[in-house]
């Protein structure tokens, strides 16, 4: 830090210029557009300030959209989270051949990035009315997935259940990727110390391993929640935009004012941003906790 005084004094004056392009881009293509939405969300159609748009979020359509979105994200986060965790545990601690471990990690990297239109199509070709699995079930077991009784109801891929099924395809590989480092961080000595003190395998998991992993597990699931909450393309392709979840309501709102109030659309969008911000915040806090534990 101690340098000759002349350059040291001159440098602070101009050095911030180095980050100007970055800031300009972020402002132009992120901050400004969001700013327009924020301002719009606090205005009525005449441009007068109001909170009415936010109050209107509790009316039926927006409220249902939020409820559905949260439900979809929660279910896929929990199922994808638990299943992804089990896979990561199986691959890392289950003494499977090394090649399987690296294959699973690589595939998870690809699968968590393989979302949107092709993913939705792939599921149509699998369990759609003409899908491979649908046909196999009919030919081999005589069970018609779409026609016959399905757990007391009827099956449709273009429903919330269908969305859950498809979303899991990118949810649990993502879980594998983000939770794997935490499982790797479980030290062999912890298990040995627990066994040494008389703990059974169950007691080790109950009192040591799961509590140590809990912050990362919760954090990862929260990230999965956000991941599903913000996803639009998969649901759009699968349901042609007909299902009532927030991202699809917003995409319909962009094409034509389906809410019959542009400003309500802005408030709907801001609600989404708010939820995502809370998600990231909680994730950060949990992450910090688990890092503090594992640092020693």
């Amino acid at each position: 830090m101690s340098q000759t005084s002349t350059p040291a004094r001159r440098r602070p004056t101009f050095s911030w210029l180095g980050v100007v392009p970055f800031l300009l881009f972020t402002i132009a293509f992120l901050i400004l557009p969001i700013f327009f939405l924020v301002v719009g969300s606090f205005q009525d159609s005449q441009g007068n300030p109001t909170l009415q748009n936010y109050l209107d979020l509790t009316t039926e359509q927006p409220a249902t959209a939020y409820k559905n979105s949260i439900q979809l994200s929660l279910i896929t986060a929990v199922i994808g989270g638990i299943f992804g965790f089990l896979i990561a545990v199986a691959v890392i601690l289950g003494r499977l051949p090394r090649a399987i471990r690296s294959a699973v990690m690589t595939f998870s990297g690809v699968a968590s990035n393989f979302a949107g239109v092709p993913l939705a199509l792939a599921f149509v070709f699998t369990v759609g009315q003409l899908g491979l699995v649908t046909k196999l079930l009919a030919d081999v077991f005589g069970y018609h997935l779409w026609r016959d009784d399905f757990f007391g109801g009827s099956f449709s891929l273009y429903s919330m259940l269908g969305l859950v099924l498809v979303y899991l395809y990118f949810q649990f590989p993502l879980m594998v990727l983000i939770v794997a480092p935490a499982i790797d961080g479980l030290r062999k000595e912890w298990r040995e110390a627990a066994e040494n003190m008389g703990a059974s395998s169950f007691q080790y998991w109950r009192h040591v391993a799961l509590p140590i992993l809990l912050p990362s597990l919760l954090g990862s699931m929260i990230l999965l929640f956000g991941n599903a909450f913000g996803a639009q393309a998969t649901a759009y392709q699968l349901t042609s935009g007909t299902i009532n979840i927030v991202p699809l309501v917003i995409s319909a709102q962009i094409r034509g004012d389906v809410l019959h109030n542009p400003n309500l659309g802005y408030a709907l969008a801001m609600g989404m941003v708010l939820i995502m911000a809370v998600v990231i915040l909680i994730y950060g806090l949990l992450q910090r906790r688990s890092e503090r534990w594992l640092r020693a």
Binding site: W190, A193, A194, V208, P211, I212, L294, A296
Partner: peptide, 8 residues
């Protein structure tokens, strides 16, 4: 490496 349980 001590192997103390960090969560306790």
């Amino acid at each position: 490496s001590y192997a103390l349980f960090p969560n306790m």
